[in-house]
């Protein structure tokens, strides 16, 4: 089984800790993971803002970068959903525009092997107890693309429930969007901020030490809002919780 990590551009640039956590976690579970350097970005910001043509080279790049791997694991629900839902659309539209089947074929190579981290753990490795230890109270926000596009269901929750020392707190209105939405956060900043503030208040009300999601982009918005509202709740990617054990440094956080 050849497994590649698609770290995503956001994690690569801003949250390398999450990428390192995925590597630590997978290696602890006996999975050898590779990081092809040709990878960059799935193209979601461009595509979702309406720049489909700017996304096309990135579809090709993704497919080529991960050729030869059986699985591509990514710590991002929305990037996984981008590949799974939108790459075939981009391919179909290019074909409909008379530009041949090349992009559709690239999409067909990329889609079946792409897994969001919790899907890979629960569905492929068939584990829910990854041997993690995280002695904190945590609330879980199901991100929209993980929840509705990927249908992650209770996978993240089952993984968290098996973490030793972790106390899971219910998040009121959990399934409501946090208001990030990529370029929406800038184009409709007022509404985005209002949604973020409501989410931050719900999170604070749980009394948890940390809020976790399967996506650092939403977490960047949630965490940035929490900071501005003077809250001390920490944003943590689920990979970092699952990677931590009694022996890792991260536990102290």
């Amino acid at each position: 089984m050849r497994v590649a990590l698609f770290v995503t551009c956001v994690n690569d640039t801003l949250f390398p800790r999450t990428g390192r956590a995925v590597v630590t976690l997978l290696e602890r579970l006996g999975v050898e993971v590779d990081f092809p350097q040709a990878q960059t970005c799935c193209g979601q910001p461009q595509f979702n803002t309406g720049y489909r043509h700017e996304t096309e080279p990135l579809v090709r790049r993704y497919a080529t970068a991960f050729d030869g791997y059986d699985f591509v694991v990514t710590p991002s629900g929305s990037c996984a959903a981008m590949v799974r839902d939108n790459y075939p659309r981009i391919g179909a539209k290019a074909a409909a525009e008379g530009r041949g089947a090349e992009l559709a074929e690239a999409a067909a190579r990329a889609v079946p092997k792409t897994y969001e981290l919790t899907e890979f753990l629960v569905d492929v490795l068939e584990v829910v107890d990854v041997g993690a230890y995280y002695p904190h109270t945590v609330t879980y926000h199901p991100t929209c693309h993980g929840l509705r596009l990927l249908g992650l269901g209770d996978r993240p929750r089952r993984l968290l429930e098996h973490v030793r020392g972790l106390e899971l707190r219910e998040l009121p209105g959990a399934e409501e969007c946090c208001g990030f939405g990529g370029t929406f956060a800038l184009k409709n900043a007022a509404v985005s901020a209002a949604m973020g503030a409501d989410k931050a208040r719900s999170i604070t009300a749980t009394g948890a030490d940390a809020v976790c999601t399967v996506d650092n982009s939403c977490l960047m918005h949630i965490g940035g809002t929490l900071t501005r509202l003077g809250s001390t709740v920490r944003p943590v990617h689920i990979a970092e919780i699952l990677a931590s054990t009694e022996r890792t440094r991260e536990v102290a956080r």
Partner: peptide, 16 residues
């Protein structure tokens, strides 16, 4: 539009 309501994430010392 971002930083008026949200803190800006710190860039890490080293990309992944």
């Amino acid at each position: 539009a971002w930083s008026d309501t949200r803190a800006v994430p710190e860039v890490p010392a080293e990309p992944f």
